[in-house]
Design a protein around this nucleic acid. Structure first.
Length: 167
DNA sequence: CTATTGATTGTTATG
DNA sequence: CATAACAATCAATAG
């Protein structure tokens, strides 16, 4: 197993504190408990409230465009790295499609995933969390570079050459 | 044909 | 601290 040295997510500092997930080793229930506590504490109150509100009504999400089209090269703003859940989705989708070829995919899977994700055990989720953590590290660098470049000269971010790229 | 929507949770960024 | 919006996916739908 030797899961690669856990590197240093601790160095992340601010962000690490917030997510404090980065489960290093799920050996004791203490960890699990802690994680659970964190989750619960994280936004217990808001979780229920917002969750219901958002899903039920509050058309905000629909109002604004959440998804944009595809950007060819996004050197400007580093997109948010996929979350552990998304990685899990990638795996789950294949399995789900294999078991349910009838189901096209997407919302159905999303729901299935969400449900399964909740029942998933800490150890199972850790794998994905680990990936997400690494991704964040990369994203962090990308962001630093992005900011740096931006401060250096934000002139080049004025326009995109989308006109002469394809049409 | 093109673009948007839809649904899931997690992370990031901002107020 | 809490909230807003976005991250991928891909079929289906709207215009």
């Amino acid at each position: 197993m030797a899961k690669k040295a856990k590197k240093s997510q601790v160095s992340r500092s601010s962000r690490a504190s917030t997510s404090a997930k980065a489960p290093k080793r799920p050996s004791n229930d203490e960890m699990v408990l802690r994680v659970k506590s964190s989750e619960g504490m994280r936004r217990s109150a808001r979780v229920s409230k917002v969750s219901e509100g958002r899903r039920t009504m509050l058309v905000k999400k629909s109002n604004a465009k959440q998804k944009k089209k595809k950007n060819k090269f996004d050197e400007k703003k580093p997109k948010k790295p996929p979350t552990a859940f998304f990685y899990f989705l990638e795996d789950f989708r294949k399995e789900f499609q294999d078991q349910n070829p009838n189901v096209k995919s997407m919302r159905d899977i999303g729901k299935a995933c969400g449900e399964k994700w909740k029942i998933m055990t800490y150890e199972d989720k850790v794998q994905y969390y680990d990936i997400a953590t690494e991704k964040r590290a990369e994203f962090d660098k990308a962001m630093a570079d992005y900011i740096k470049r931006k401060e250096s000269g934000e002139d080049l971010e004025t326009e995109d050459s989308d006109s002469e790229f394809d049409v």
